[in-house]
Write a protein that binds this DNA or RNA. Structure first.
Length: 874
RNA sequence: GGGCGAUUAGCUCAGUUGGUUCAGAGCACUUGGUUUACACCCAAGGGGUCGGGGGUUCGACUCCCUCAUCGCCCA
């Protein structure tokens, strides 16, 4: 079979993904094995794959594939969430381009359009994940708005309400005037903007003189109901108990006193607008102030404002200044940088607004969820996020769960005509409860009015680890097998949105944690550390990357730059490195595959020893990889396998066992080599699923249905550290010979003779066949005296000589030796100094002192040998 | 303003309870290479006062204090 010298990822990857699907290898059913469960952080149903998903899902797939190969029953549940506000915004926009206004549609008509959108876009992102190699159990694909998940949401709402944890109240909420809905605190992003600070004079009532306030939002003066000073501010003692006049509307408002006012900021006088600022609202409550809501839901001014009615708040901000100037109220205007809250979804400037919403009490649930993490019942990786989590949990506020949208789970609250309400999971139940409540058996559903609002999307996402197994359905018991899940992989930016709330839901509804480990990924940025965004155009299209470098290459590239939790600076060169590595593996395979076997050949000693060494090296690496995985150091684990393949296997092992050009190989060595290759491929499979499968299938005849993805992960047998250390010395000796060849321009194919002076008898002679082969030595002999007329080098106390007669330059050799001598002497001094320090010898552990003594002895021996060599050359 | 974290090679980062000459890895860089698997490669090499200062200790990248700079979260 002719194999191309460059690996072709495109053909390979589609072929094997299809094979895995056809063989149903991703599917999991409960059985007697230990489960390993991961739920996907559901991507937004309208979204497309971006680099963050690539990273996230690469890591999940690595964990899942590895668990599967370690004999666990791995189940990775995929799905999407309905992203109520984002999707609704997209649907509204599309309707707009079709000339349809949302306001003209009934709820059901609108939902029809929203489902159409979902049908069109919903599957895209999951199909893209397949290109990456994601080994999700696609039979289990869920959607937060499908039947089972919806029932879960409604069911839990009813339960939480029964427990008294859900309440309805008037609160200051974050209002998105574009989406016309409340959003949670976590959905507000603060942006730095250049704005102005306006200094405005208010006339004091009944006397000459003015009070100056400073504000960034002059239009809100129309809703002012007080001016506040700090009671300790001596500048304003004369104002106590007086009243001022709001400009333009000429409303008389009181001057109040409150410690909240920062005497340093602005003028020290603060205007209070309880309806439009959270702090003012609280102050309004304390001082019994009137609340004047001057804004309509869409951000225009309402009748209550009296002026500029119907105009947008930003327009008014511009227009009110000339009016104020005309009235003589503007003192000055300064440039000012401040942070403005914007909607994460629509980008609109958020208005704090009083409105009636549904809330979920957080205090009790947060306490349980906090303890779970602080005691490591749920482990965070990296652990530094525990602090962030604690801070949020200790300051948690009740969760505003209602949204004024159509696309989502409609709140199961039914109002009666008298304003009372019942909470029920369906219409029948609602009617039954209403009858009970009112003592009126004639009530029908027509007498009830269901709440118009829907629930926050996270009210379904937080149930995800339970709801994907239909865990609220008492007739289903799969949950008992799969829950709690094992690992959650997610971005650290949604630690509050999602992770915290899933932990709360886990304890609340299942009595235990939803997952054992949380692996937080960083944010993917470009090579200059900028966030990837559409505007900057600095985000590569993941599918293009896969086409160009292969999914394996991209996976490796993602990992090479991804310390846990830290931001990662993505650069194409990393995926290129991944692709190059795949090519390297491919070519190693080409080499092995190209060998002709001759069963009559005996195995060379070098191969026997090489195979023995490599088995220990492999075991050692497996140990290291296991350790890395146990600490969720995924990129370190990859780097260990990468180094094993590139350095140990390719550069050393294959060179040791490789037969001469166009010569056959013996059977035993070939078998062992294929075996070793097989093991490395299995170690590699979680990281590079496609190429590992491709080569694994070609390496030996496989039966239909066999796959590396369900092969057993190699296990550690024994590691002989001494043997490994001796091989390292052999490597040094080989490098010594290569250096001399290079210095003297002796080609590798030219044989040399090698003499060894084993000064202290420490040399492991079993490695000599390897040294002989890799040094291309015609003979290796042992001597008891220094060899003159030869080039030499030392490895520990062992001296190596290459007799080269006229090529030897005594001057140069002496210089080289003297440099080494200088270093050794310096080293000896530092060690001796340490050992002559009584406090060190008395206080340091015995082991440490022994090591230092050994170093001293080694250095002394080496110095002696070097000095003799120098004398010999002179 | 409150809190958290960081600062180690040109870049991105390791460095696990203080202890081998322990200052490391990958990339980048320099030099050399038509070695018959691979130039998507191989070999060799340069490069850091571990942010500054102080302290604890026989011993500090590691622990403590302080200063500086940066980042993130929250208000």
């Amino acid at each position: 079979m002719e194999l191309a010298s460059t690996y072709n990822s495109v053909e390979t990857e589609d072929k094997w993904y299809k094979y895995w699907m056809d063989q149903n290898l991703f599917h999991s059913e409960p059985d007697e094995r230990e489960p390993y469960t991961v739920v996907i952080p559901p991507p937004n149903v309208t979204g497309v794959l971006h680099m963050g998903h690539m990273l996230n899902n690469t890591i999940q797939d690595i964990l899942v594939r590895r668990a599967r190969m370690m004999g666990k029953n791995a189940c990775w549940v995929p799905g999407t969430d309905h992203a109520s506000i984002a999707t609704e915004a997209k649907v509204v926009n599309r309707l707009k381009t079709q000339g349809i206004d949302k306001a003209d549609l009934t709820r059901d008509e609108f939902l029809g359009h929203a489902w159409d959108w979902t049908e069109e876009h919903g599957g895209i992102i999951l199909e893209q994940l397949k290109k990456l190699g994601a080994s999700c159990d696609w039979d289990r694909t869920c959607f937060t708005l499908d039947k089972e998940r919806s029932e879960s949401v409604i069911d839990t709402f009813v339960k939480l309400h029964e427990k008294g944890l859900i309440y309805r109240g008037v609160r200051m909420v974050n209002w998105d005037p574009d989406a016309l809905t409340a959003v949670s605190d976590e959905e507000v992003v603060y942006k730095e903007v250049k704005s102005k600070l306006y200094y405005l004079n208010y006339n004091i009532e009944g006397e000459e003189g003015t009070v100056t306030i400073a504000t960034t939002r002059p239009e809100t003066i129309l809703g002012d109901t007080a001016v506040c000073i700090n009671p300790n501010d001596e500048r304003f003692t004369h104002l106590k108990g007086k009243r001022v006049i709001v400009p333009l509307v000429n409303r008389s408002i009181p001057i109040i006193e409150d410690d909240y006012v920062d005497m340093e900021f602005g003028t020290g006088c603060l205007k209070i607008t309880p309806a439009h600022d959270i702090n003012d609202y609280e102050m309004g409550m304390r001082h019994n102030l009137e609340s004047i809501d001057i804004l309509n839901d869409d951000g225009t001014l309402s009748e209550k404002a009296q002026l500029f009615v119907g105009k947008d708040r930003f327009v008014v901000r511009e227009e009110i200044i000339p009016e104020l100037q005309k009235a003589g109220n503007v003192l000055k205007i300064e440039d000012y940088d401040n942070k403005v809250g914007c909607s994460e979804r629509t980008g609109a400037v958020i208005e704090p607004k009083l409105s009636t919403q549904w809330f979920l009490k957080m205090t009790e649930m947060a306490k349980v969820a906090l303890d779970a993490v602080m005691t490591d019942e749920v482990q965070f990786h990296p652990a530094k996020f525990k602090n962030v989590y604690r801070h949020w949990m200790e300051n948690v506020k009740d969760w505003c769960i209602s949204r004024q949208l159509y696309w989502g789970h409609r709140i199961p609250v039914y109002y009666l005509e008298n304003g009372e309400f019942v909470v029920a999971k369906n219409d029948e139940e609602a009617v039954r409860l209403a009858k009970e409540k009112r003592g009126n058996d004639a009530l029908t559903i027509a007498d009830l009015r269901q709440e118009e609002d829907v629930l926050d999307t996270w009210a379904s996402s937080w149930l995800w680890p339970i709801s994907v197994f239909d865990g609220f359905n008492p007739e289903k018991n799969e949950i008992d097998y799969y829950y709690p899940t094992s690992d959650l992989v997610t971005g650290h930016d949604i630690i509050f949105f999602w992770v915290a709330r899933m932990i709360m839901a886990g304890y609340e509804f299942k009595g235990t944690f939803p997952f054992k480990n949380v692996y937080f990924t960083g944010m993917v940025r470009d090579d200059q550390g900028r966030k990837m965004s559409k505007q900057l155009g600095n985000s590569p299209d993941p599918l293009d990357l896969i086409a160009k470098y292969g999914a394996d290459g991209v996976r490796v590239g993602m990992l090479l730059c991804s310390p846990a939790g830290g931001d990662l600076l993505f650069d194409d060169s990393l995926t290129e490195q991944g692709r190059n590595f795949a090519n390297k593996i491919w070519n190693a395979f080409r080499l092995v595959k190209g060998w002709e076997v001759d069963s009559s050949l005996p195995q060379p000693d070098s191969a026997t020893k090489g195979i023995e060494w490599f088995s220990h090296k492999l075991n050692q690496t497996i140990e290291v990889v296991n350790d890395h995985f146990s600490k969720y150091r995924i990129s370190d684990a990859l780097m260990s396998v990468y180094t094993l393949f590139r350095d140990d296997f390719s550069s050393w092992y294959l060179e040791i066992v490789k037969p001469g050009y166009q010569q056959p190989i013996d059977e035993v060595t070939l078998k062992a080599t294929i075996d070793n290759f097989d093991k490395i491929l299995r170690l590699l499979h979680p990281f590079m699923p496609f190429i590992s499968e491709e080569i694994w299938q070609l390496l030996e005849p496989r039966k239909e249905g066999e796959s590396i993805m369900v092969a057993q992960m190699p296990e550690v047998t024994k590691v002989d550290e001494k043997l490994l250390a001796n091989f390292e010395l052999t490597k040094e000796a080989v490098a010594g010979v290569r250096n001399i060849r290079k210095q003297k321009n002796i080609a590798n194919k030219e044989v040399i003779a090698l003499s060894i002076l084993d000064n202290d008898g420490s040399l492991d002679k079993t490695f000599i066949p390897i040294l002989s082969k890799l040094a291309n030595a015609s003979e290796v002999n042992f001597v008891t005296e220094k060899v003159s007329g030869a080039l030499s080098f030392m490895v520990k106390a062992t001296e190596y000589y290459i007799p080269l007669g006229d090529l030897v330059d005594a001057e140069e050799e002496i210089k080289k030796l003297e440099e080494e001598l200088k270093y050794q002497k310096g080293f000896l001094i530092s060690v001796s100094k340490k050992l002559s320090n009584e406090r060190f010898v008395n206080n340091a552990p015995e082991k440490v002192v022994a090591i230092e003594k050994q170093k001293q002895a080694d250095a002394e021996a080496k110095i002696k040998a070097i000095e003799e060599s120098i004398a010999n050359l002179k």
